[in-house]
Nucleic acid binder design. Structure first.
Lengths: 216, 216
DNA sequence: CCTACCGATCGGTAGG
DNA sequence: CCTACCGATCGGTAGG
């Protein structure tokens, strides 16, 4: 019975039949993650409706029916992509803010950190998850939208204290609520035109954004 | 071309496409325009791929096969929607700039006019054509994309002299090319969150944008 | 512009 | 996770 440790060939062991909740987490997560990554890339490139589950399966090296072993529907897969993107973005931005607080950075510098991290989340290599969320919001079902909106509100909430401080010190003249929407819009739009093969780097973009939004 | 200033009604004169068809232009343009408007609304609301030609036909009060009497394919209909949107936007913005030049307005005021007109084009009632272009660019065929890119470049070109002047006078600190992308991004993103039923008006948005981008 | 229709594709499932 | 398959839908067309 010591063969419960038999992990030499992890691919050999595969829970037959019942899709219970207690599946080999390591292996299943592997394939599931491959599907998520493939879906994110394709959803971003062609859009949700124009991407077939067959496309996604093929990109993950599976047969056409297999994605449905991991996700109940295409719709659920879309949601999973977005949720994964938002959780990662949120974790990253929280870490950024904590570091800022520890270093006691000025609000201006804090904003710079937020902007930089935001650009990274949007434009970094393989970061297709958040862009999918930005451009497929309308493809969600109302219930999914409501659920994700909580994460989005949390993410945007991280910007508010910084913007409020900058507004109080007259560095930011627009009302905070509209400033937040306009600033995030300026950044989010970059996924439409940013080309990593061309010159501008995330640093350049952050410089330009800061110069645009804040006086010297 | 000076009479094209009367652009509020872009539906009037229509020298489009193949001049071989000698159908009653007025009536044909009528139905064709109904299809364009319905398609614009649905493409914006649900996306190109998720909208069926049957949806569009029904919204225009037609039977399922009838759109193909006016447009060779769904793809061509998409292009027609975007082209119509860009031509109207371009005409409007050109008129704005001519008025600015006549009144000898300061660059700052000129930018304000551009921003205002841009918001109107995006957020005005029934203005679904340009938003479709902004969010369905990836649904175009390469050839269509190339053709529309000319109009887009022309539109964005109108902003350059104004931004360059503001940069020269140190009112705009970011490099002009990036500033243009970031500013238009901030404005374009408004189609995602703007709600005409809520408080902020196009005037409020324009005020906030100007306050954000330019020092007092 | 309508009626009637077709071929292809797609999301999803049964059963192993 | 694969094989084999189904029902529904969709873009588009022929002919009037």
């Amino acid at each position: 019975m010591q063969d419960s440790v038999a992990l030499a060939d992890a691919t050999a062991k595969r829970p037959r039949g019942r899709p219970r909740k207690t599946i080999d987490e390591r292996d299943d997560g592997n394939r599931r993650q491959a599907l998520l990554a493939a879906a994110a890339r394709l959803f971003r490139q062609k859009g949700f409706a124009a991407t077939t589950t067959r496309d996604i399966a093929a990109a993950a090296g599976m047969q056409s029916g297999s994605p449905f072993y991991h996700f109940k529907s295409k719709q659920v897969l879309l949601f999973a992509v977005m949720e994964e993107g938002m959780r990662a973005a949120l974790a990253r931005q929280r870490a950024t803010m904590q570091a800022s607080a520890h270093a006691d950075l000025a609000p201006k510098t804090q904003l710079r950190k937020l902007v930089e991290a935001h650009f990274e989340v949007l434009l970094g290599p393989g970061n297709d998850f958040v862009p999918v969320m930005l451009y497929e919001w309308r493809s969600l079902q109302p219930r999914q939208r409501k659920s994700l909106a909580l994460l989005v509100a949390e993410y945007e909430g991280l910007w508010v204290p910084v913007l409020t401080a900058l507004h109080a010190s007259h560095h930011l003249r627009a009302p905070v609520a509209l400033a937040r929407l306009l600033i995030l819009g300026a950044l989010n739009w970059s996924v439409q035109w940013f080309d990593p093969k061309k010159s501008a780097s995330v640093q350049d973009l952050s410089d330009a954004a800061m110069a645009l939004f804040l006086p010297p």
